[in-house]
């Protein structure tokens, strides 16, 4: 059974129709990415799925007992608030030390337990947010622009982590991103959104769809193959991943020209 099914969902916010006739279903264990230009309703769609927004039409069906782990966009923590990573994981519900360590390990942040949240780098911070989302043992992990502010190797690293989490935990992943090339390569399915579902399917299918090209042009699709390779699980291995990516960008760019 699908984890979440949306049937002809309409959302109006402040008198403006943001989502129109959106239908989609999420299956257990798959990675789905939503892409779309600014203002296309990506975040609204996520918030509708979480339940923070009530649709004005259509239905949202959730599997019974569905647990959702949510990784927000970059979270600002005021420097006046002292907060260790360990304490952060226990908000709002207290978790055991074992559970906290396991979640940090799964998110690739095992060594950060006693750091202050405000001392973390962008990539470390997102890993801690991921660890927090994993604590509830979710069936579905939702990431809203989770790599905003990370450089390309950093975000590629992060998505590698997401893939390994999916493999180990078997949870489905739904994410929104601007970084088409990196994200789409890590996905099983891509949904291209612009108020309505423009097109959807495998990354390759979407990238070559005329609707997608009308929105994003041809420029980005060359980088599609980025990171679609057997990667090691060493998280420090930025350079390796980056080089292969750059190499493949080159190849595709070449193909584009010849086509």
């Amino acid at each position: 059974m699908s984890l979440i099914t949306l049937v002809n969902v309409n959302v109006r916010l402040g008198g403006r129709t943001v989502l129109e006739d959106v239908s989609l279903a999420l299956e257990p264990g798959e990675i789905v990415t939503i892409v779309g230009p600014n203002g296309s309703g990506k975040s609204t769609l996520l918030r509708t799925i979480i339940g923070a927004i009530k649709p004005s039409g259509g239905t949202v069906l959730r599997k019974k007992g569905l647990k959702i782990g949510y990784v927000p966009q970059k979270l600002h923590i005021d420097p006046t608030l002292p907060l260790t990573v360990r304490r952060f994981l226990s908000l709002p519900k207290r978790v055991s030390n074992d559970a906290a360590h396991a979640a940090l390990h799964d998110a690739g942040a095992g060594h950060l337990c006693h750091h202050q949240m405000t001392d973390l780098s962008g990539g470390q911070f997102q890993r801690v947010l991921l660890a927090r989302a994993l604590l509830s043992k979710p069936d579905l992990l939702i990431l809203d622009e989770a790599t905003q502010g990370l450089d390309q190797p950093g975000s590629a690293d992060f998505y590698t982590q997401i893939e390994s989490v999916r493999r180990d935990k078997g949870c489905a992943v739904l994410m929104v991103s601007h970084e088409l090339h990196v994200v789409m390569a890590a996905s099983d399915r891509v949904i291209c959104l612009n108020g309505h579902v423009c097109c959807h399917g495998t990354p390759e299918h979407v990238a070559s769809a005329p609707e997608y090209r009308a929105l994003f042009g041809n420029g980005t699709h060359g980088a599609l193959a980025l990171y679609r390779h057997e990667h090691s699980h060493d998280h420090c291995d930025h350079d390796h991943a980056h080089q292969i990516g750059a190499h493949q960008i080159g190849e595709h760019a070449h193909e584009d020209q010849s086509a």
Binding site: I50, I68, Y70, P72, L75, H76, S90, L91
Partner: peptide, 19 residues
């Protein structure tokens, strides 16, 4: 205390945790 702290951190995060 815990709910207040969560809401202070980030409203969306709080919403997702049922606060």
């Amino acid at each position: 205390w815990s709910a207040l702290l969560t809401a202070t951190l980030n409203p969306d995060l709080a919403m997702a945790s049922g606060v």
